[in-house]
């Protein structure tokens, strides 16, 4: 069990490092997929089966494919990408390492969790997560559909070919032309 944990942890850390270090964006996406699959393995180790399935479907199946699709659509797969200056890169690595040191220092005396007595190993199953989702968290669940609707509308607005102002102008002129036509008919 603990060996499986170490295996998945090694895979996820190495592939996460490769996401940052890879030259080509497609290689980054592939190694991020590997990282997400190993995180799904962690979820299964924690007996969070519902989350493991949703994670694979949503992240690996939808989000990463969207990334790949955008990379191939925009033809971004150039390996000669301009790099930041050396001092900025050193500062970035130092910032990440110092942040990690700070976090590890915060928990070096243990996190001191008194685990409550009643323990149930089946809380990651679909039944109990679904019960919690549709009783305690029903309102946020319904509100998330509004969030998705606004995200869809925002993505469509941003992804349109012409600028919005131009569209509005052409729409107005078309409307004016329609009015003129109506006048002529009358």
């Amino acid at each position: 069990m603990i060996y499986l944990f170490y295996l998945f942890a090694t895979i996820s850390v190495i592939s996460a490092l490769f996401v940052v270090a890879a030259k080509s964006p497609v290689n980054s996406v592939i190694s991020l997929i590997v990282c997400f699959l190993s995180i799904a393995g962690h979820y299964i180790l924690l007996n969070a089966q519902f989350l493991a399935m949703v994670h694979i479907i949503v992240y690996t199946g939808a989000i990463m494919v969207l990334f790949l699709f955008v990379i191939m659509l925009l033809n971004l797969n150039k390996s000669t990408e301009p790099q930041k200056s050396l001092i900025t890169r050193i500062a970035a690595v130092a910032a990440g390492g110092l942040f990690l040191l700070t976090l590890l220092g915060a928990i070096k005396n243990g996190i001191g969790i008194a685990t409550p007595g009643g323990y149930d190993g089946g809380i990651g199953l679909v039944k109990s997560v679904g019960m919690s989702l549709f009783t305690d968290f029903l309102v946020p669940f319904e509100l998330s559909s509004v969030l998705f609707l606004s995200a869809i509308i925002g993505a469509v607005m941003l992804g349109k070919k012409e600028s919005t102002a131009k569209q509005m102008a052409t729409g107005d002129s078309a409307y004016a032309g329609l009015n003129q036509a109506e006048h002529i008919v009358r």
């Binding site: 989000i63 149930d120 990651g124 997560v129 919690s132 998330s144």
Partner: peptide, 26 residues
Amino acid sequence: SAHHSDPSGQVFVFFIMLVAAAEVTV
């Protein structure tokens, strides 16, 4: 969540996934 046997944490993770999907779209 798994160590405390409280399903609320996993519901939070579900919501984080929803927000991440919307964020990636935009």
